[in-house]
Amino acid sequence: MNNLQQTARVGLFFLLGLALTWVTFETLRGGKIFKDQGYNLIAGFETLKELKDGDEVRMAGVKIGEVEKTRLAGRRAEAILRISHEVKIKSDATASIVSAGLLGTNYIGVDLGTESAPDLPDGAEIKTKTTPDLNSVMSQIGDLGKKLEGALGNLGTALSGDGKGGPGIIQKVDQLVSENRESINKTTTNLQAITDKVNKGEGTLGKLINDPKLHDDLVAALGEIKQGAAEAKTFIANAQAIVDQVKAGKGTIGALVFDQKAGDDIRASIATIRAVSDKISRGEGTLGKLLNDDSILRDAQSIMKKADRALDGLDDTGPISAVGVVYRGLF
């Protein structure tokens, strides 16, 4: 009996060790002893990068499932996602492979999608997008470094020359300065002389800088110019207002320019005046005869002489006699 009990105990401990080993293994793989069956979704990518079975599927940073299996399907790689039945993924949601830090493991990240969109059924394919990983970023940085190195090499060649006798920018500038050193010295001397004159108040610029009165006069002149510009602006605005009124047919000028009836009346008046002038020129009518007939002028002069003689005789006669004298003198 002792051997049988001992054998039973050994077998029991062996089974218990297997159970503990299985529990530990399952716990390390998925974080659960008993998996949530959930439902499956298919995510297709150009490459799964370092994604492997058992990696997490997260939505908004929360674990909602895991990668059940990875496989190669034709010209692309697919990941079979096991999603918890408590989580519903919308049909417009997008899955991408995300790296947990620079040296962390990869996982599938799923966005929330649109709330009004329908849910993806079991076995459906979820939309995916490719995100740059550390390797592609490092490759791009390496390419950028090569381009930068080439650009710096070209800049160095341009500055110092190509090493085959061709001068660079620095050599060209040095040569230019050497060849024109005398001219540069003369120019510098002239500039120094001009600066000295300006500091002494000589010349127009020197007076402008050093003479306070000239400066004040210049400021006053600028003020007058500004005032004149403001007045000119006001005049232009008033003229524009008058032009607008004329265009609108307002006022006398506007009526003359744009009122057809006023224009017709003016033309009719001018025609009437011209006709009267023509009649007067031809001696027609009373005014025409007065201006053109000399006999009427002579008759008027004769009447005036008679009236003058009649008035001379009024002094010696009475009122009644005076009337008779005037009547005889005139007629």
Results as ranks from 00 to 15, higher is better:
P319L: 15
S295I: 08
F258Y: 09
D122G: 03
G161L: 06
S321H: 08
N154D: 11
D122Q: 08
T105P: 06
D92Q: 11
T234H: 04
V67T: 07
E182K: 10
D294E: 15
L41V: 02
A271M: 10
D162V: 01
A79L: 05
L297P: 02
T157G: 09
Q171D: 11
K88F: 09
I296V: 11
I209A: 02
G65R: 05
N292A: 15
S277T: 14
D308P: 02
G123W: 03
L214C: 01
K279D: 15
I303M: 15
E115N: 10
A221P: 06
V98H: 10
K197D: 08
E56N: 11
D259F: 06
A232P: 00
K207H: 03
G288D: 07
V326F: 05
T131P: 00
K52H: 13
L51P: 00
D211K: 08
L20Y: 01
A100D: 14
G168T: 09
L102V: 12
V257N: 04
F258W: 00
N40L: 10
K146Q: 07
K129N: 09
I108T: 01
T157Y: 06
K90R: 14
K233F: 00
I273G: 10
I236N: 04
I253D: 02
E46M: 06
V323Q: 12
A60E: 10
L256W: 09
L4W: 02
A158C: 05
T157P: 05
G74M: 13
L205V: 13
I320Q: 14
S295T: 14
I242W: 03
F235A: 06
F45Y: 03
P132C: 02
G254R: 01
K233A: 07
D312C: 10
V57Y: 01
R309L: 13
V87N: 12
L155P: 00
K306E: 04
G324P: 00
G318P: 08
A307Q: 12
A310S: 09
T130H: 08
L208V: 01
T286M: 14
K129Y: 05
F25M: 02
N180W: 11
G249L: 05
V257M: 10
T157M: 07
S321G: 13
N292E: 13
K289R: 14
D316V: 10
I80N: 08
S269Q: 14
G324R: 07
G104Q: 07
S302V: 12
V173K: 07
L208G: 01
G329P: 04
E46N: 13
L4P: 00
A124V: 07
A124Y: 03
S99Q: 15
A93Q: 05
A60G: 07
F235G: 06
D312E: 12
S139R: 15
V62S: 13
A60L: 09
G74R: 11
M59K: 04
P167R: 09
E284C: 11
N185V: 10
T27A: 05
L176K: 14
S295R: 14
A73D: 15
K306M: 05
K213M: 03
D264F: 09
T47C: 08
L15S: 04
T130V: 09
I97M: 05
A158I: 04
E86Q: 15
T317N: 13
K147R: 15
L297A: 14
L290T: 10
D316E: 14
T286V: 15
G74F: 15
G318E: 09
K305A: 14
V243G: 06
F13L: 06
D174V: 11
N2C: 00
G283A: 10
R309P: 01
G288M: 07
